[in-house]
Computed example of a mutant assay.
Amino acid sequence: MTDLSSTELSARGAARVEWIRSRMPLLARTREDFGSSRPFAGHLIGMSLHVEPKTAVLLETLAAGGAEIVATGNHGSTQDDIVAYLRDLGMTVHGRRDDSLEQHHENVAAVAAARPDILLDNGADLAALAAGAGEDWRIIGGTEETTSGGLRLRSQLEGRIPFPVIVINDSLLKAIGENRHAVGQSVVESFMRITNLMVPGRRFVVAGYGWCGSGVAHYLRALGGKVAVAEIDELKAFEAAMDGYRVAPLEDLAEWGEVFITATGHPGVLTEPFFERVADGAVLANCGHFPWEIDVPALRAYSTGATVLDEAIERIDLPGGRHVILLADGRMFNLAGREPKGNSLESMDLGFLLQSLSLERVATAPESLLPGAQPVPDVLDREIARRMLAAMAAHR
């Protein structure tokens, strides 16, 4: 936690949000629309999502529509100045940057305890708590931001969610604009910012060739990286091969790669058999939502020692004199380290417009949606595409 007072933190947060807000024209228009229509009047929106400046602009937009807000961030990505700023706006925001995982779970539980009737979820953490609450908690619907959360809703929570949840990451618009291009850009930027290592000529292995993985591979290669892809889905592996990447199983790439980046949304991608073969000095990083793609507990159990080298850099010693470098403790590393930026402003303007209009649909026409996880309605995708194209044309 920073030593600044809450007043100083809030002022710093306000200044940062002002810059972000000025570069998010799609949300600016929506904020005006919501100010007139007030679609969230009488509703309490519960949020579990990264608390950073772009999210603050989203919350301002929802508040303009009459929403009350109770919120928390994700583990390790909360920015304290933004928390202070949002609290000064009258929102209830739990958590801070240095919270432990246990404290983070308590923060999510505190949001759930407020019994919001609309959820803005990231990883289906709130939905999971709602599934166990029964009739004690009435929810009219919500949204889920991530692929990982969508998978969770459609697997372990399948049939247990009696309200509609629009999965923002099912949107083709978001997949193209945010996942492929914005995540791809932010992952490469964050790798350089956190490690200060050079991309050109370095050997990278990207695990997963979905929208995020393909974007990461694209931007690494664009900057001169040598990129291989590990993908268990035959069709995606074929696509990666046709895009010109070396494609092979992780075990065959363990000794070749210098940097391994997981982007699958699934647990247990890098596990002990991989750690037994990985090259000395390799960097391990994850850009998926949950910190489970790199099996960090197994890595620590296999290790002979560990040394924290910087805020998001840890050396893990392995048997036989080898070592690996773990970034951000296996958490989403493009929101880690000093001055994390995350995805680009334009992509989040688009993504949060999807959130805003999807939440508006939940608040005003829940009967038009089915219970459980579902994609963004096509009519919203196409309307937002038109708005984004118009905004892009205005800057040419």
Rank of each mutant, 00 (worst) to 15 (best):
R152L: 03
R180K: 12
R154V: 04
G184S: 06
N169A: 11
G184Y: 05
I176R: 15
F163H: 03
N179Y: 02
N179W: 05
L157D: 06
Q185A: 13
N169P: 00
R160D: 05
D170M: 11
N179S: 06
N179H: 00
I176F: 10
A175T: 02
V183H: 01
A175Q: 10
V187W: 03
Q156K: 13
L157P: 11
V187I: 03
R180D: 00
H181A: 07
N179D: 08
G159T: 13
P164K: 06
S171D: 05
A175N: 12
L151D: 05
L173S: 05
S186Q: 08
S155N: 14
L153G: 08
L157F: 13
I176H: 15
R160N: 02
E178S: 13
F163V: 01
R154F: 01
G177H: 15
L153Y: 06
E158Q: 15
S171T: 00
V167N: 08
K174R: 13
L153H: 10
S155R: 14
N179G: 06
V183L: 00
L157N: 08
G150T: 12
K174W: 01
G177N: 11
R160V: 14
P162D: 14
Q156N: 12
S155K: 15
P164W: 11
I168M: 13
L153T: 03
V188G: 04
R160C: 01
I168H: 02
V165F: 04
L153D: 05
L153S: 04
D170N: 12
H181S: 09
G184E: 13
E158T: 09
I176W: 05
S186I: 00
P162F: 13
L151N: 12
L172G: 04
V165D: 05
Q185Y: 13
F163S: 09
E178N: 15
S171H: 05
S155D: 12
R152D: 05
R180Y: 13
E158W: 13
N169K: 06
K174E: 01
L151A: 10
I166D: 03
V167A: 10
P164D: 02
I176Y: 09
N169F: 02
A182W: 08
Q185H: 15
V167S: 07
A175I: 01
D170C: 07
L173Y: 06
G150A: 06
V183D: 10
Q156H: 08
L151Y: 10
N169R: 02
V187T: 14
E158A: 15
